[in-house]
Every structure is written in C-alpha cells, then in structure tokens.
C-alpha cells in the first residue's frame, strides 16, 4: 500500500508544476491550462484523502470542483477569445490594461 503521504506529495508536485506554468508561460491559454493542472492536483489529494478516511465527502468536493472548472473554462475561454479579437494577442505580458 502506498501511504497517504505519497499521494499528497505527488499532489504537491503536480500543483507546483502548475504554479510554475502560471508564472513562467506567457501564453494565456497555457496559463489557463496550468491552472487546470493545479485544480487537478488538489482533486487528487481530495480523492486520496477520501480513500484514506473512508469518507465520500472528498469525492463530492471533487465533483463540485469539476463543475466549477467547467464553468471557469467556458467563461475564461470566452474571455480569451474576446481579448484576442480586440488585442490580436493573448500574451500575458502584452496585456497590461490593468495598471495605473
């Protein structure tokens, strides 16, 4: 049996990879995908802990996370499409409208 900490560490590694993707990539869509990766990493720890504790609650949370992720993807990608239509770019460091 793999101990629970293995699952959690794997989750942490995946999460950090997601963080690095958000920070290092400039393509907004890839940043977005990195965010999905982070969500999945957290989902993994939820499922692992649900299994560990013998409680379904963690799995239900994951279900909600999936629903929210779907909503987020729909709206987020729509926003990215709009931005591309207006700015001809989706590079994060060229989109600097949100400053003074």
């Amino acid at each position: 049996m793999a101990p629970i900490s293995y699952h959690l560490i794997l989750s942490g590694i995946l999460f950090t990879i997601g963080v690095m993707g958000v920070l290092l990539r400039r393509n907004t869509i890839i940043i977005f995908m990195a965010i999905e990766l982070m969500l999945n990493a957290v989902n993994l720890s939820f499922v692992a802990l649900a299994r560990h504790l013998g409680s379904m609650d963690g799995q239900l949370i994951v279900l909600f996370v999936m629903a929210v992720a779907a909503a987020e993807a729909a709206v987020g990608l729509a926003i990215i499409l709009m931005v591309f239509r207006n700015k001809e770019t989706i590079n994060a460091d060229e989109l600097k409208l949100m400053r003074w």
């Binding site: 994060a92 460091d93 409208l97």
Partner: peptide, 8 residues
C-alpha cells in the same frame, strides 16, 4: 509600482 498590469 507594484501594479504593473502583468498578471504573472
């Protein structure tokens, strides 16, 4: 100066 508009 912090608010440079770069999301990252």
């Amino acid at each position: 100066l912090w608010q440079n508009g770069n999301v990252q």
